[in-house]
Amino acid sequence: MSHPANSYALVADIGGTNTRVALADGRRIIETTIRRYANADFPGLESVLRRYIADEGGVDPVAACVAVAGPVRDGRATMTNLDWTIDKTTLARATKAETVAILNDLQAQGHALGHLDEAKIRTILPAPAASPQAARLVIGVGTGFNAAPVFDLPGGRIVTPSESGHANLPIRNEMELRLCQFVSTAHGFPAVEDVLSGRGLERAYAFLGTEAGDPREAAAQDIMAACADGTDARAVDAARLFTRILGTVCGNLSLIQLPFGGVYLAGGVARAFAPHLTRFGFAEAFRDKGRFAGFMSNFAVHVIEDDYAALTGSAAHLVALDAPQSRAASHES
């Protein structure tokens, strides 16, 4: 296959296990160009991108943006669950693109808001309509956990990074204290991500087994399958525990950020839980804030069911980067 040079942007979503790469025409992802690569097969991102460029017939992108599951500082990203370090120099060398950018993966999800198919947005909790400029909040639940507020300002969109998944896990009762003590053996510290992630669901299941004096393990996908078909009562209890803690944490983050424009849950685990959140008590836990319980009804909660939203967000970010230059050129002419 052949693509015209300097016509498309290259965008990538780098998770802990896989990297997805695609070409974008403006904000539109060209679906036929989406490819997935197992990170374990490559020593680093540069080799992944070189393989992709070769697989796409030696495409020469005009710009490149990657979304990374880890903190980004001064144009340099460190993966949280993968031994890769990524910087703009490496990205430019691998893609030969004139413009390059690196985002945290939740920042990419934030930049995608407003550019996704509404059919792929599932509403869990409705709320009163808000102004288009109202703050929004994206919360990622997948291999890890994180959150990023989204602000639409006169000068453009700002999506600020954070590492919310590494804050302390909240405790409301003695059982949750015991859960904190149980998961703290993983890293010596009971972080939100130790429960609210795919591996966290597995830890919740193991914790309930220890509590019952019948310890056993189960993979996250098997736990979710058992929730759907009702074959394992402990799986249902683990999912309910997970959901209530998710509701508590999302409620806490909402009080911190005041996202009157809505809360958007993203990530593979969020999508898997979407059909179960209502029956497992997400709303009750989300709004369980004492005298602020009524105030919590101001925040809608949605689930992003578009698996390629981070790619769309990366493309939208590149368009926004180019917009000031285009406006300046138009003004000068």
Results as ranks from 00 to 15, higher is better:
15 G>M: 07
17 T>R: 05
18 N>G: 01
18 N>F: 07
24 A>G: 10
38 A>G: 08
40 A>D: 14
41 D>P: 01
44 G>L: 03
46 E>K: 08
48 V>C: 02
51 R>F: 05
56 E>W: 02
60 D>Q: 14
61 P>C: 07
63 A>R: 02
64 A>E: 04
64 A>H: 06
66 V>N: 07
67 A>S: 15
72 V>C: 03
73 R>G: 06
78 T>S: 08
83 D>V: 12
87 D>Y: 02
90 T>K: 06
93 R>C: 08
95 T>L: 01
97 A>G: 11
97 A>P: 06
98 E>K: 14
100 V>K: 02
104 N>D: 13
104 N>Y: 03
107 Q>Y: 01
116 L>G: 08
117 D>R: 09
120 K>I: 03
123 T>Q: 12
123 T>E: 14
127 A>I: 09
129 A>Q: 13
137 L>D: 07
138 V>G: 01
139 I>L: 07
140 G>T: 15
145 F>V: 08
145 F>R: 07
153 L>H: 05
155 G>T: 13
155 G>N: 11
155 G>C: 10
158 I>S: 14
158 I>L: 14
160 T>C: 02
160 T>S: 13
162 S>T: 15
162 S>I: 00
162 S>K: 00
165 G>T: 09
179 L>I: 06
179 L>F: 10
183 V>D: 00
187 H>P: 00
190 P>C: 02
213 G>K: 10
216 R>A: 12
219 A>F: 08
225 A>G: 02
233 A>Y: 04
242 F>H: 11
242 F>D: 08
243 T>A: 09
244 R>S: 07
249 V>F: 10
250 C>V: 15
252 N>R: 07
254 S>M: 10
260 F>A: 12
261 G>H: 00
266 A>M: 09
269 V>C: 04
272 A>N: 12
274 A>Y: 05
286 F>T: 05
288 D>Y: 06
290 G>R: 06
296 M>N: 09
298 N>D: 12
299 F>Q: 03
301 V>C: 12
304 I>L: 15
305 E>V: 05
309 A>I: 07
312 T>C: 06
313 G>V: 04
320 A>W: 04
320 A>D: 15
325 Q>A: 15
326 S>H: 12
327 R>I: 11
330 S>C: 05
